[in-house]
């Protein structure tokens, strides 16, 4: 650029500035397209979203002397309401060979159908092959709603 008048100098500077803006924008655009594509193609390091709490329902809908399986992410949790009305929750995965346990009114205990393992209503293994107690979960009642959360 050999021109020396003031107007042309301003135009040339303006064009250079726009060129930089456009080039930078293009690079940013390519980056913003490529990054999510690459991130999408790469498998996530965490296989599953960690669930920390689930809402079970209304307290009035849970009868006394009953048990129900609650989905806690991909794992089952058993929520027990005792004859006295206490709420307790435990992992519903049997500590023997990972079957899903259930509440048996007739036994007054938590029972595994696979090998007749039994747990008391505190989750302690009391008979059959289970080697360990069931992991305990926390039950919180907020107003009418019942929540089960991880026991930290």
């Amino acid at each position: 650029m050999t021109t020396t008048d003031g107007l042309n100098t301003v135009n040339v500077k303006k064009r250079d500035f726009l060129k930089w803006i456009l080039s930078g924008g293009l690079v940013a655009f390519v980056g913003s397209v490529l990054y999510p594509v690459l991130a999408y193609l790469k498998p996530p390091s965490q296989s599953e979203v960690e669930v920390s709490s689930v809402k079970v329902g209304k307290l009035t809908d849970i009868p006394k002397d009953s048990g129900q399986i609650v989905k806690f992410g991909s794992k089952p949790v058993i929520l027990i309401r005792t004859v006295a009305g206490d709420l307790r929750a435990f992992s519903a995965t049997c500590t023997h060979l990972d079957c899903t346990v259930q509440y048996r009114k007739d036994f007054g205990a938590i029972w595994c159908a696979c090998h007749n393992g039994k747990y008391d209503l505190m989750g302690h293994n009391i008979s059959g092959p289970p080697p360990r107690p069931l992991n305990e979960y926390r039950v919180v009642v907020q107003g009418e709603e019942v929540f089960v959360s991880k026991n930290t």
Binding site: P43, P44, E48, T100, C114
Partner: peptide, 24 residues
């Protein structure tokens, strides 16, 4: 599917029943 980032929690939950049926 899980490695590819898909949501398969429900299917994983059902898979437990298959395991249980095999043990039973």
């Amino acid at each position: 599917a899980e490695q590819k980032g898909m949501e398969v929690t429900e299917a994983k939950f059902k898979l437990r029943d298959v395991h249980q049926a095999r043990l039973q």
